[in-house]
Write a protein that binds this DNA or RNA. Structure first.
Lengths: 360, 360
DNA sequence: TTTTTTACCGCAATCGATTGCATAAATTTT
DNA sequence: AAAATTTATGCAATCGATTGCGGTAAAAAA
């Protein structure tokens, strides 16, 4: 503590081993039990003892060993998060809030990526089981259709919270948004703006997010007296920028090409916007575009992209809270909760056909 | 395994406790030591035993307890990462590569955020010490000026790798870019494009990244026969979008306002670009702008922003590798390495004064 | 003064895996 | 055939904290 802001190189010689509660106990001539209890404010320990012990602990730079405590109590102070790609804005926002919520409760977060691959997700689950995490937050990989790798968690009463990408088939905790409703709103908005041939870039339908959005899109059309046309629905595999352009090229080559498009993510919508700029299709005048997620780029690009705010931060926060609530409790299936958060359609220039700004 | 893809709710009743090596040992009538050795392919165990034991382990769904192993060997299979904000593109890219590198070696990553606050960073360090991480990767908080919270790691021979935001005062492993050179290139580029009154939005100078960039900027001016003007240097505190606009407003109100600007990050550069668009300053014709980092938005915005590619992914990869190399070794100060990666100036429209495209 | 509480604290087992040392059996050497 | 190796395995301590079950001394009640 003295030479705190040490500007010299750290001293590597004194290979000081860790101080344990036994060391503290010996020095104060009490038992390790007493030290342990004192450090946790156990009621059965006198105030002076507690004071003396905590003081010595600080003085000797005692660092509690979480591994030992975890082993004894068969839990760890870590929770696991399995996400698809950390560097996607939606996911990093979600993780951010999880970290903030969880670490305010003295716990840590182990993060693993599935890269949207089933195999990786299974391995991740196994790794987290080995680490004895005391909870798990998962956003499913695109490929995943089988959920048996989560069974061990249920068997051991380790709470699993599915976030955003959730399994329909499994009864469990879930935090997500109403994708049907969000898509319905987005599509309705396009119709109200005067677009009529509205295409949809969807994702693989076994993942509910994309199925629900597609159904919302279809329902909106129907409710507005427009007959859904299967040829206007393009199911994307990677949902990458490249695939977006590819899809729209194909759609435009139809006999009855669309005059608007609802994309299931912003990445594709943005790439299409750029593509249109290059080939001279004017947005929103000639073509309306709506994305999904409200990625930061959507408000930067010109014309700004209409999109649906997908509350990643809030999803993470709720998932973390739900997890913490179900720590070390003897829960049953009946306690499973599904939290559905609100999305918000953010109207910007890319669909503003009626509006004033029409230079697109 | 049978009802693998279970579509019914998971069975919560059989509160099966974990299978341990003792259980396996008892069932095969061998000692736990043998099981442990067999599971690690110890040479002293006969092949048939190994086969029998691994088979049973699989059959009984044995899950090794990392906590116990870690306690015994006084290490954990986790490494810690302290970053400032997970949801910033630069950092999430860095973390992504760390996770990929480390988990390919069977280890996990615990991620903590400092929110650029010293206090949080200290707490994070303590938490990771408690968790007995076997390594640490740190990108320093903006506020941090004292590094004593890392001392315990050095004392215990836990490798610490500083990444991107590194301390000059401490002798340790470091992975970073040559900020001086990057800034020198960026500034030189502006000069070569014909700009003369070049301003700089810098960051607080105790953090070397920003000091080095400012010095690179100054040196470039000097080397091109331009006299640096202190009034054209604006030291930012938060480096937020708002602060960027504030700074540029102030700079433009000078008697001799700048005609170009080198910003120490993309966030401010982008917000200024948008601000200019609003108030009618044409980029690059009237004003040149260079950012830093190569955030995805820089290539989307119109005009596209000239910026410096800051190799977050590679920094993370090198940091992780460096860390893994120094696991469980008896290293000394002499082993400390500094890895300096290359940046790249990415020239886009926002500085293309001489170029063809001049409609900005 | 004796009995009953109350307040504090210690003993020792436990969590599950690892590992130095010892030992028994099998094999080779002399 | 006895001795020396080699091979394969077990014993028991250990890592550090936690905790059920008692135990003792002081305080309170009888």
């Amino acid at each position: 503590m003295e030479d705190a802001n040490s500007n010299k190189a750290p001293d590597l010689k004194k290979k000081k081993t860790h101080v344990t509660i036994h060391d503290l106990a010996a020095e104060l001539k009490v038992s390790p039990s007493t030290v342990s209890r004192a450090l946790h404010g156990h009621p059965g320990i006198s105030q002076e003892r507690i004071k003396a012990i905590t003081r010595l602990a600080k003085k000797r730079n005692y660092v509690p060993n979480e591994l030992a405590a975890g082993l004894r109590q068969s839990r760890s102070n870590c929770i696991g998060v399995i996400t698809t790609w950390i560097d996607r804005n939606f996911h990093s926002s979600l993780i951010r809030s999880v970290e903030e919520e969880v670490s305010s409760k003295g716990m840590n977060v182990i993060i693993l990526q599935s890269h949207d691959r089933y195999k990786d997700e299974v391995e991740n689950a196994k790794a987290l089981l080995n680490s004895r995490v005391s909870g798990l937050i998962v956003s499913l990989a695109m490929e995943t259709r089988d959920y048996s790798h989560f069974k061990p968690f249920f068997e051991r009463q380790i709470p699993v919270i599915f976030a955003d990408r959730v399994p329909r088939e499994i009864h469990a905790h879930k935090v997500l948004v109403d994708n049907f409703k969000a898509a319905y709103q987005a599509t309705s908005h396009l119709i109200e703006q005067g677009y009529r041939h509205i295409a949809h870039l969807s994702g693989q339908q076994h993942r509910d997010n994309y199925l629900d959005r597609q159904e919302g899109y279809v329902q909106a059309l129907k409710d507005h007296g427009i007959r859904p046309d299967k040829r206007l629905i393009y199911e994307c595999e990677t949902k990458s920028a490249e695939e977006g352009v590819l899809a729209v090229q194909q759609l435009l080559s139809l006999k009855q090409p669309p005059d608007a498009l609802f994309s299931t993510n912003d990445t594709m919508a943005v790439s299409i916007l750029q593509y249109f700029k290059k080939i001279g299709i004017r947005v929103p005048r000639d073509f309306g575009i709506v994305g999904f997620n409200n990625d930061p780029i959507t408000s930067i690009i010109d014309p700004a992209l209409t999109t649906t705010y997908n509350p990643a931060y809030e999803i993470g926060k709720h998932a973390a809270k739900l997890l913490l609530e179900h720590q070390r409790q003897n829960w049953t299936e009946k306690d499973f909760k599904t939290i559905r958060l609100e999305t918000e359609l953010i109207v910007r220039e890319s669909t503003d056909k009626k509006g004033l700004r029409n230079e697109g």
